[in-house]
Computed example of a mutant assay.
Amino acid sequence: MPLHKVIYLSNNTKLYLWKITEDLDTLSKDMRLKDSSIARLKSMKSESHQKGFLSVRKLLEHTGYSDFDLYYDEFGKPNLKPQSCSIKEMHISISHSHDFSALAISDKNIGIDIEILKEKIIKIAPKFMNQIHLENLTSEVKIRKATVIWGIKESIFKIKNEKGISFPKHIFENNFNFEDKKATATLDFNNKIEQFSVEFDVFDNYMFVCAFEN
């Protein structure tokens, strides 16, 4: 299946979604990969992870980049090589969950997370968030809100990518209304307080969350 959807967010950010319906042969057809990517792909034991890896490269091609423009720093954070036609440095973030892959490109430092909506999130919520955010909500709204909060923490972690950051101890989401599709959060780590703005929404029983470093 081709590109599923492009979502235009604030701060000159585009979110690209790919719904994975192809087999591995179809995804890999005519795709050029650098040697390190071929080795990484072969090392993956899960077919789901292989499809996620390849579909992200399909998204890169759709945006005018390729696997050769993508590199990872020493901490494993993805980056884009600057293009001669672009004045601004562009930032990238990547996520994969079940049947979807996501890629966000922005002129701001960003983190993206997509998650399928599952009841299981309510059971593990006490491990990563303040339960006050889920009080007096229906079961469906609890699942969605807890998924957003997980996504907030995951996205901020992707932006900072620093060893030692704890979801419950260092990343704090401010109270928000789910209907607003926006939130704010704070990272309090290593004697430094940083603020983040967040956008989120539901698509095809999944949630995307995109955090921006203020």
Rank of each mutant, 00 (worst) to 15 (best):
I143S: 01
A146M: 01
T147P: 05
I159T: 09
N161I: 07
F157T: 08
F157V: 08
V148C: 02
E154R: 01
L134K: 11
L137Y: 13
I165C: 05
N136Y: 11
V148S: 07
V141T: 12
K145H: 08
K153Y: 03
E140Y: 13
V148D: 02
V148W: 07
V141Q: 11
R144C: 15
I156T: 03
K163F: 13
K158A: 05
N161L: 02
K160T: 12
E140T: 13
I156P: 03
K163V: 11
K160G: 06
E135I: 13
E162P: 00
N161R: 04
L137Q: 08
I152S: 02
S155P: 04
K142R: 13
E162S: 11
I149L: 08
A146I: 05
I165F: 03
I149A: 04
I156R: 06
V141H: 12
A146D: 09
I165M: 08
L134T: 06
G164R: 08
N161D: 09
T147A: 04
I165A: 04
K160Q: 15
I152L: 03
K160L: 14
V141M: 14
T138K: 11
I149D: 01
S155N: 07
T147G: 05
R144I: 15
S166K: 10
S139A: 11
I165Y: 06
N136I: 00
R144D: 13
S155I: 03
S155F: 01
S139G: 00
N161P: 09
I156L: 07
I165N: 04
K145M: 08
I152V: 10
K153A: 06
E154A: 06
K158R: 09
K158P: 00
F157A: 07
I143L: 12
L137K: 11
I156Q: 00
E135D: 06
F157S: 07
I165G: 00
A146P: 07
L134W: 05
V148E: 06
S139D: 11
V148Q: 00
N161Y: 13
R144M: 13
G164N: 08
I143G: 07
S166I: 09
I165H: 00
G151V: 03
W150N: 00
K142D: 10
I143N: 07
I152E: 09
K145E: 05
K163Q: 14
K158W: 12
L137V: 05
V148P: 01
E140R: 12
F157K: 03
E140W: 11
F157C: 02
I156N: 03
K153T: 06
I156M: 04
S139H: 14
K142E: 15
T147N: 12
K160E: 15
K142Y: 14
R144Y: 15
L134Q: 04
T147Q: 12
E154T: 03
E154V: 07
I165D: 07
I152A: 02
A146Y: 09
